[in-house]
Simulated scan of single mutants.
Amino acid sequence: MLYVNIFQLGPLETNCYLVYNDAKEAVVIDPGGDPAEVLAVLRSQGLTLTHILNTHLHFDHIGGNAALSDATGAEILAGEADRPLLSSELGSGGFMGFPKTPSFSFTPLTPGTHTFVGETCHVLATPGHSPGSLSLYFPVLGAVFCGDLIFYRSVGRTDFPGGDEKVLKESACSQILVLPEETIIYPGHGPQTDVRDARENNPFFTDFHML
């Protein structure tokens, strides 16, 4: 069985997700700021953090990567196509006066089937918000972590370098909206939603007719 804890970290209150199992293995998705709260839960629950998973490499999703990896030894995984962002203010920080991002190294996470916390995770290529954006679908959890691809009745910005509105919609329709309608969508910001609501009530997908 998997469990999910949610934290709002960093200057933009990015949703950071701690996912763990009964065997006390854990992954963290998108630690966007000081990970002190996450570390406190890891320690209090006796959890072993195996990986830090980034849906994309914008500064507000990676601000806690270095500190969390240094404290736990967990490997950082992210989409290779987002690597160039780390050489820009959008990834390295300083954008619009926000804090700089402590540097870190990461291992490319390729789309396909992986195993995290003892369960199958389908890593989906979902570019549009950024070139290397990934979504993480855990069937056993009935949930997908999609970063800034889809929000509750909205979508992520596409006006940053590497963003593309058409590509984002194609990603959402071909990878996320085809999942079972009860699938929970855990976004990078704001409240969760689900596939049914995204199909029926998200104004960005009113022309979705693939089902």
Rank of each mutant, 00 (worst) to 15 (best):
N21A: 13
P102N: 12
K24V: 04
G97D: 08
P139H: 07
Y20M: 10
H51Q: 12
P127R: 03
L124P: 05
V117N: 04
C146L: 11
L49W: 11
G112T: 01
L168F: 08
H189V: 10
L134G: 00
D30K: 03
V38C: 05
G112C: 07
F145K: 09
G64R: 07
G142A: 13
V144Q: 05
P131G: 02
F7Y: 13
G32E: 07
E89C: 09
A172H: 11
T72Y: 09
I184D: 05
H51I: 08
T206R: 15
A78F: 06
T14Y: 01
A78E: 04
K169G: 01
T193S: 14
P127K: 08
D164C: 14
G64S: 07
R83V: 10
V167P: 04
I150K: 11
G91I: 02
G132Y: 07
T206S: 13
Y137F: 08
S69P: 04
L177I: 08
G156V: 06
L168E: 05
S105V: 03
A23T: 06
D159Q: 10
A81D: 14
G132K: 05
L211A: 09
L86H: 02
I29V: 15
V155M: 12
L177G: 11
G162H: 09
E182I: 06
V167Y: 00
D30S: 15
L109N: 01
R157W: 02
T14Q: 02
I176P: 01
G94N: 10
T110H: 06
D70S: 14
P111W: 01
L124E: 01
T183A: 11
T158L: 06
L179H: 05
S133R: 01
G118W: 01
P102A: 07
R43K: 15
T115H: 06
G142I: 09
P203R: 07
S88K: 02
L85Y: 11
G112I: 00
A40H: 08
H114R: 06
G94W: 00
Q192W: 15
P31A: 09
L49I: 09
I176V: 03
L177F: 04
E181V: 05
A74D: 00
D22L: 15
L134A: 03
E170Q: 15
G10F: 11
L134V: 08
E200I: 09
A26C: 13
G32A: 07
S171E: 01
S92H: 00
A172K: 12
V19C: 12
Q45W: 05
L211S: 00
A198F: 00
D164Y: 06
A36W: 15
L49M: 06
F208G: 00
L86S: 04
T183M: 13
C16N: 12
I29Y: 09
D34L: 02
A74I: 08
A78T: 04
N65E: 10
L149R: 09
F98K: 08
A172W: 09
F7Q: 07
T107I: 13
R83T: 11
K169I: 14
